[in-house]
């Protein structure tokens, strides 16, 4: 197999699955995998999903990091619940995200499909009872909404990176939000500028409101940095009366 990122040839380990199941989904080689900083689900912040082992112990209280405590006190959380992240920000993932998002190499995202699906199942499992799980009625409660980009950005980039990630997880994807205003890139702003933005850049998609009522919503994005975007999106979703709003991002950084 060819590694999606570095292009090196590698062999998948011999297991029953790799021998008997014809599987040619592209993936990363072991060297690239090893250089990614995966976040263990039991060692992360309960609210924002950041890897707590990277923080000093003084900055953490009851498995919650200081930033999330600040958010709690700010009263801007609203409906927004928790974030789940897969990887911590490091030089390799930075390079990957540049190639994926800014250079347009959408094929790279397919390498994360497995991780994203696993994370989605974990989230579904966490929020459901055994009875729901047994009769498989629970996943229908979840609705996936990719964070939208503006029409201008879409034309410039050619694709919406959150949508690409959402498609890897699969249905039920709903374009519940639209972004009409064209703004400066979040990645070009500093932390204070980001936290200062209170006005939501999103609008509810009127055609989809009925699909969101009494559903658990999972927002998908590529990166969670300060959490402002997620909270503004959750705020915008209030009129649709969802049960809860959580999010899943590829990176926490």
């Amino acid at each position: 197999m060819r590694c999606l990122f570095c292009g090196a040839d590698f062999l998948k380990p011999l297991t029953f699955q790799t021998v008997f199941v014809l599987d040619d989904t592209p993936s990363f080689c072991d060297t690239c995998r090893g250089r990614l900083a995966a976040i263990a689900p039991d060692a992360c912040c309960r609210c924002c999903g950041r890897d707590l082992s990277l923080l000093e112990s003084t900055a953490v209280k009851h498995h919650i990091c200081q930033d999330c405590i600040w958010w709690k006190h700010s009263g801007r959380n609203g409906l927004y619940g928790t974030n789940n992240a897969l990887f911590s920000y490091n030089p390799l993932i930075k390079e990957m995200i540049t190639r994926f998002k800014f250079r347009g190499d959408t094929a790279l995202a397919a390498g994360f499909a497995c991780d994203l699906r696993c994370a989605f199942h974990r989230i579904v499992k966490k929020g459901s009872t055994w009875r729901q799980r047994l009769f498989m009625t629970d996943s229908s409660q979840f609705v996936i909404i990719p964070i939208p980009v503006s029409a201008h950005r879409l034309r410039e980039r050619g694709f919406n990176q959150a949508e690409v990630l959402a498609e890897l997880i699969g249905p039920p994807i709903v374009q519940g939000l639209v972004r009409e205003k064209h703004e400066m890139k979040q990645s070009k702003k500093n932390r204070r500028q980001r936290l200062a933005s209170r006005e939501s850049p999103f609008q509810l998609n009127k055609e989809c409101i009925h699909l969101l009522e009494n559903k658990k919503i999972l927002l998908i994005d590529d990166i969670y940095t300060t959490g402002v975007t997620m909270r503004l999106a959750a705020h915008t979703l209030i009129p649709a009366h969802p049960l809860s709003v959580d999010s899943l991002t590829l990176i926490h950084g």
């Binding site: 347009g104 190499d105 959408t106 094929a107 879409l154 034309r155 980039r157 050619g158 694709f159 919406n160 690409v164």
Partner: peptide, 8 residues
């Protein structure tokens, strides 16, 4: 070569 959905 890879395939992507293109907005353009």
């Amino acid at each position: 070569f890879a395939v992507c959905s293109c907005a353009r």
